[in-house]
Design a protein around this nucleic acid. Structure first.
Length: 137
DNA sequence: GCCAACGTTGGC
DNA sequence: GCCAACGTTGGC
């Protein structure tokens, strides 16, 4: 079981939008980056991920679960692009801000900090546990 | 809204 | 295969 982090601009598709989809979940479509796509190919049903609000928000707001492994992205005819499906599990009682993550020595190696533009990224066991704790879970 | 960082594209 | 130009992302 692996952990991941999904980024989205709340103005475009935020946490509340995913919650509104319920248990059906939603395609994590629109990814047009090979690295991010490759991480999605590595995902398995049942994997957990953080949901991060980029641009405006700048914080991890909730936990999601992968409900379908990588399949062709229905928003493009281009068969290079794939996506997984995710559903909302629960919000973090206390959202963890980018500021907090940057200031935390234990999280300094996170892709969120080191390669800011990667929209889907892996999270280590240690990082996962640490952020859950900071988030009040 | 700006701009730095980064990925992609295309001419050579 | 190199690299300049261009487009996009995301923190500020």
């Amino acid at each position: 079981m692996a952990q991941w982090l999904f980024k989205s601009e709340p103005d475009v598709f935020g946490w509340d939008d995913l919650v509104a989809k319920g248990d059906t979940g939603e395609e994590w479509d629109g990814v047009r980056n090979y690295q991010a796509r490759n991480f999605m190919r590595d995902m398995a049903v049942g994997d957990r991920g953080f949901f991060y609000h980029s641009r405006s928000g700048l914080e991890i707001v909730g936990i999601v679960e992968v409900t379908a492994e990588a399949h062709p992205d229905s928003t493009t005819e281009d068969d290079r692009w794939e996506c997984v499906d995710v559903k909302a599990i629960k919000p973090l009682p206390q959202p963890v801000t980018l500021e907090t993550i940057k200031a935390d020595e234990a999280l300094s190696e996170m892709a969120l900090v080191r390669s800011a533009r990667l929209s889907v990224q892996p999270v280590t066991d240690a990082e996962w546990a640490h952020i859950c704790k900071l988030g009040g879970l």
